[in-house]
């Protein structure tokens, strides 16, 4: 009796899931193929497939190349892209190194004040970065002046010219913020992870005469790889897409990261309607992360859920 009814609900369910799939995927595919059309073509038929696909010819491939050249070269997306890689790459390396160091010590050693320091790191999970933003902005000005006053005289005395150190509008400043802000979460997850590793390994290494440093770098770090990968993925996505701090701390165009690039593109879109360029810029910012996701999706979703559930 129940069979035809349950078949119907099953069909409806799959229909609904498929409809949602189309809603999620279609806008992305639309962006992807529209980026191959020039602006007139987009205006004439906003949904039509690009001529580059329907009637491939050199002329139509050209509008695809023009869009991407305009975005990559003229609108500096190439530069933004490498800026993002640089800022996120350096930040991630530092986060993982410093995070592992702190987590390892907090997980594996007994010393006075250990719990207090651990709790102090945990407090960071409750602090929204918006609270830190404004004071940090002024603190960076002060620290820049202070560092300049400290180092400019000796540099001048050595005849190396005038030195000014600025943390504002510099990649170094942004990296400092990214690293510091990511530490609480990273330390939290990695401490839990290092606690699960067997302590005998460390003792055995120490008995063999290895120093604490050696033990850490050649035994504990490699063992911590699964935990490190999880935190790396979680931090990577957050930093790669970060907008607010980059907006406040990077003002010159040559320093901007990808999210800033897209934002300025969308502001231009209001009065300059070069839609070909806009779609190409979107593809440049969306496609690389999507490809990374498709390749690593198993690890990535696991990393994100573990990260989220612990956080």
């Amino acid at each position: 009796m129940a069979a035809p009814f349950s078949k119907l609900t099953k069909g409806l369910k799959i229909a609904f899931l498929t409809a949602y799939l189309v809603t999620v995927v279609f806008p992305m595919i639309w962006v992807l193929y529209t980026s191959a059309k020039n602006t007139q073509e987009i205006y004439r038929s906003p949904f039509g497939l690009p001529k580059f696909i329907t009637s491939p010819s050199r002329r139509h491939i050209k509008s695809l190349i023009t869009n991407y050249r305009k975005a990559w070269v003229d609108s500096h997306f190439g530069r933004y892209f490498f800026n993002s890689i640089y800022v996120v790459g350096v930040s991630l390396a530092l986060i993982l190194l410093l995070g592992c160091m702190a987590a390892y010590v907090l997980a594996r050693f007994e010393f006075w004040g250990r719990n207090a320091i651990y709790l102090l790191f945990l407090c960071g999970l409750l602090i929204p970065m918006q609270l830190v933003l404004i004071p940090l902005f002024f603190q960076f000005t002060d620290m820049g002046n202070w560092l300049t006053n400290l180092f400019a005289p000796p540099v001048r005395a050595l005849g190396l010219g005038e030195l000014t150190i600025s943390l504002q509008n510099s990649h170094a400043g942004l990296i400092l913020i990214y690293v510091s802000a990511s530490l609480p979460f990273t330390v939290f997850v990695l401490t839990a992870f290092f606690r699960t590793l067997p302590g005998e390994l460390r003792e055995a290494a120490m008995l063999d005469g290895a120093s604490e440093y050696r033990t850490f770098f050649s035994i504990m770090m490699p063992l911590g790889k699964p935990g490190i990968v999880t935190t790396a993925i979680f931090n990577f996505l957050g930093l790669w897409n970060e907008y607010l701090f980059a907006l406040v701390f990077l003002t010159s165009d040559r320093l901007k990261t990808l999210p800033l690039g897209i934002a300025s593109l969308s502001m231009q879109a209001q009065y300059r309607s070069d839609f070909g360029l806009l779609f190409a810029g979107l593809v440049i910012s969306m496609l690389p992360v999507l490809l990374v996701y498709i390749v690593l999706q198993e690890k990535l979703t696991k990393g994100i859920t573990i990260g989220a559930l612990k956080g």
Partner: peptide, 9 residues
């Protein structure tokens, strides 16, 4: 998918 794309994009 949409979760890996930046919120600005």
């Amino acid at each position: 998918f949409p979760n890996v794309i930046s919120s600005v994009a």
